[in-house]
Simulated scan of single mutants.
Amino acid sequence: MSTTDAVTADDGAADRWAAVRDLPPSAKLVAKVLDYNDTLTQSELAEETLLPPRTVRYALSRLEDEGVVDSRFSFTDARKRLYSLSV
Rank of each mutant, 00 (worst) to 15 (best):
A9R: 13
D38R: 11
D77A: 12
S43F: 06
V69I: 14
L45Y: 03
E66Q: 15
R57E: 12
Y58F: 10
T4V: 13
A19Y: 01
L60E: 02
A14P: 00
S84K: 14
V69H: 01
A31L: 08
T49E: 05
Y36P: 00
A9S: 14
A59W: 02
V30E: 01
E44C: 04
V20T: 10
L85S: 05
D65I: 06
T55P: 00
E64H: 09
S26G: 10
G67A: 07
S2M: 08
V56Q: 03
D11Q: 10
E44G: 08
L63C: 05
V56D: 05
V33G: 02
Y36I: 01
D65F: 13
L29M: 13
G67W: 09
K32D: 14
T39R: 14
T55V: 14
D22H: 10
R81C: 04
V7I: 15
Y83Q: 07
A13N: 11
A31G: 08
W17P: 01
S71R: 15
A18W: 05
S43V: 13
D65E: 15
V69S: 03
V68F: 09
R72A: 14
S86P: 01
D11G: 00
T76H: 11
R21I: 02
L82F: 05
V33K: 03
D70F: 07
S71I: 01
E66D: 07
L63T: 04
S2F: 01
D11T: 09
D15P: 00
V56W: 04
L23T: 06
K32W: 12
S61I: 07
L85V: 07
S2I: 01
R16H: 12
L60M: 04
A59L: 04
L85N: 11
A6C: 03
R72F: 08
S61E: 13
T41M: 03
P52T: 11
K80I: 08
L63G: 01
L85P: 01
K32G: 00
D11L: 14
E44N: 06
R62F: 04
P25Y: 09
S71M: 04
L23H: 08
S2Y: 03
K80C: 04
L82P: 04
D38P: 00
V30P: 05
A13E: 15
L50C: 09
D10N: 07
E47N: 10
S61P: 00
L45S: 04
R72S: 14
A14D: 13
D10K: 07
L40A: 08
R54G: 10
R57A: 15
A46R: 01
S84L: 06
L34Y: 05
F75A: 14
Q42N: 09
M1L: 11
D35M: 03
S2L: 10
A18C: 03
Y83R: 07
V7W: 11
V56R: 02
V33Q: 03
L34I: 07
R79I: 00
M1P: 11
A78F: 09
A14W: 10
T76Q: 12
D70L: 12
L23V: 07
L45C: 07
S26R: 07
Q42R: 15
R79P: 03
A59E: 05
T39N: 06
V33R: 08
L45G: 02
G12P: 00
L82I: 11
